[in-house]
């Protein structure tokens, strides 16, 4: 999504308030943006705490700063600055974390972002966007240029096959119709599932929904009805159990009085074998590959 992200930002260069700060990341993706933005593109160096403080100061001056780094570097290291400097003052700083979940694969655990939105959603007024497909970026960048809330944009890899056409970005979207339960996937995980389920007939597959914005207040009514009828629900996310979408969903359904007999949540287990590998390797260890998820809901 980095290239789609850079392309979308290039279209916003004319907004005079737009300022882009990077913590020394962006090789092979942000060079054009750097060139186009001139003095409004600032590489603050490897100093994330200062980057967040500076962004809050810029926002206080009515500018629209975006800050960018590898996901854990931009939310975990400077968490207190995000909490105090940005969120306590309700400043619309856009925090962009590249490589959500196991995105950085064999680079290792320091580069993974498994608890990012769970932690950040504890902060007042912060909103999280987890685009599933490259096309979502086109929609989200202009939206985030106007938002009045602190926001976290979790970038991953768009895994949707090109022949499948995504509908316009919404917090919840239905991607596949099926009769064997309902799967709700967070962000890019939906891409691989979409591909797999598209190859199956309706009566041999579950419905697939994707969620791309958190927190949510209500599920779409159509989704609630599907869950009730299917009586079988699986939530999947590349994030820890604690603070994850699965917990939010369970809590919501319980409060809503939606009673179903089968609900499972699949999430990032961390490093169960204590070995490292590609994003696919880690997903497999957590049971997050499309074929594993299909097996889970069909059994």
């Amino acid at each position: 999504m980095r290239v789609a992200f850079s392309s979308a930002l290039l279209k916003s260069v004319a907004i005079p308030e737009f300022i882009f700060l990077t913590g020394d990341l962006g090789f092979n993706a942000l060079e054009s943006l750097r060139e186009e933005m001139g003095e409004r593109f600032i590489n603050v160096g490897v100093a994330e705490q200062n980057m967040v403080g500076v962004a809050a100061g810029l926002a206080k001056e009515a500018l629209r700063p975006w800050i960018y780094s590898i996901a854990p570097f931009v939310y975990a290291r400077p968490f207190e600055q995000i909490r105090n400097d940005i969120c306590n003052h309700h400043l619309p700083v856009i925090i962009v974390g590249n490589g959500g979940g196991y995105g950085y694969g064999v680079m290792g655990a320091t580069h993974h972002a498994l608890e990012d939105y769970g932690i950040l959603l504890t902060l007042p007024s912060l909103e999280v966007y987890i685009p599933a497909f490259d096309e979502d970026i086109e929609f989200l960048v202009p939206l985030l240029m106007r938002t009045t809330n602190p926001s976290y944009l979790r970038l991953g890899l768009s895994e949707k096959p090109k022949e499948l056409v995504a509908t316009k970005f919404e917090p919840f979207r239905k991607l596949v119709h099926g009769t064997k339960g309902v799967i709700i996937a967070v962000g890019p995980l939906a891409g691989g599932l979409w591909k797999l389920l598209s190859s199956l007939p309706d009566d041999q597959r579950p419905s697939l929904w994707v969620v791309c914005k958190l927190p949510f207040v209500e599920l779409p009514e159509a989704l609630i009805q599907e869950i009730k009828i299917a009586n079988r629900l699986l939530s999947v996310e590349e994030h820890t159990k604690q603070g994850g979408f699965g917990q939010m969903l369970g809590n919501y359904l319980f409060q809503k009085g939606v009673s179903i007999s089968w609900y499972r949540s699949k999430y990032a287990l961390g490093y169960p074998s204590k070995r490292y590998g590609s994003q696919r390797f880690h997903r497999q260890e957590s049971g997050l590959l499309p074929e594993q998820l299909l097996q889970e809901i069909l059994n």
Binding site: V54, A55, A56, G57, L58, E61, N84, N88
Partner: peptide, 24 residues
């Protein structure tokens, strides 16, 4: 301008405000 109390925040905030004034 800013809520402070946890130490080590003010200088970065001040830098952001100063940079903002320069850019504007």
């Amino acid at each position: 301008a800013f809520a402070t109390g946890s130490l080590g925040h003010g200088v970065g905030l001040a830098a952001g405000v100063a940079l903002g004034k320069r850019l504007k």
